[in-house]
């Protein structure tokens, strides 16, 4: 499903990702963990091409893009982006559109699908994430948890092969975290392929098939979620998990 090879990303002289190699199989849930500044979010943004890597290649589904040196065609990037959906830490719903308008906007404009069928499909998705009764509300009148669930539904409307989550609960009050995590867990049970940047270790234990621990731009340790989180092999992973448990 996802194959990342020798990925490298720098901002000026500051290298934030170095020699990243990993793969994610269809239906797998991968959690990226690590301290702030370790490169987790940059890696996720590279998968969605919000950041362009300097070197290496990314393959998602049937689309492979090689970043080594050559200038990329817009079409190539657009094709790769088709396979993934992104859920942001700050939700980024369109504030001037109601929840249902947010949900149908991209398929209406990008995929040029019919509004009526999109509304029916959108309402089904909103029921699934528990947001149906808020469909005609504007984002500004919703809680953070509700906005995040709407944002998840918005990404799902584009039928992505893989859903990318960038710390989906970090901007939420503790009591709102659970409602979002429940939706993500339900998606995991349905077999949705997901890559999730998170600091919620208990959630990662419950939902992840694999966990990658990142530090200073490298994937330091990766493997089965239980193994990495409960019996880490690398010293840096141990230290990070120890810090979190204190």
């Amino acid at each position: 499903m996802i194959y990342v090879k020798h990925l490298k990303k720098s901002f000026g002289e500051n290298t934030v990702l170095e020699s990243i190699d990993f793969s994610v199989q269809k239906g797998e849930v991968v959690c990226l963990i690590g301290a702030s500044g370790s490169g987790k979010t940059t890696l996720l943004r590279c998968l969605n091409l919000l950041e362009l890597p300097n070197y290496g290649s990314i393959t998602i589904g049937d689309q492979a893009v090689n970043f080594s040196g050559k200038k990329l065609e817009k079409k190539e990037l657009k094709e790769l982006r088709k396979y993934s959906g992104m859920v942001f830490q700050g939700f980024h719903l369109f504030p001037h559109k109601t929840v249902i308008e947010n949900i149908i906007e991209a398929p209406l404009i990008v995929q040029r699908r019919k509004r009526d069928s999109l509304v029916i499909e959108g309402e089904k998705l909103l029921k699934k994430v528990g947001m149906f009764e808020h469909k005609d509300k504007y984002p500004d009148s919703l809680s953070g948890g509700q906005q995040q669930r709407a944002a998840i539904a918005r990404s799902l409307m584009m039928n992505p092969e893989v859903l990318l989550f960038d710390e989906p609960t970090s901007a939420l009050d503790p009591q709102l975290v659970r409602e979002v995590l429940r939706v993500i867990e339900a998606l995991a049970k349905e077999g949705q392929t997901m890559v999730i940047v998170t600091h919620e270790m208990n959630f990662a234990k419950r939902v992840a098939d694999k966990v990658f621990f990142m530090d200073e731009g490298y994937i330091v340790e990766s493997g089965n979620a239980k193994d990495v989180l409960e019996t880490p092999k690398k010293q840096r992973t141990k230290e990070f998990l120890q810090l979190l448990s204190e």
């Binding site: 969605n48 919000l50 657009k78 982006r81 088709k82 993934s84 959906g85 992104m86 942001f88 700050g90 980024h92 719903l93 369109f94 906007e105 991209a106 404009i109 990008v110 944002a151 918005r154 990404s155 584009m158």
Partner: peptide, 20 residues
């Protein structure tokens, strides 16, 4: 963030400009 979420939803520059 508005530009980024539109880009993540595969919207082009002018679509994003006009609609968002």
């Amino acid at each position: 963030g508005q530009w980024e979420s539109a880009a993540a939803l595969q919207m082009g520059y002018w679509q994003t400009m006009r609609r968002i």
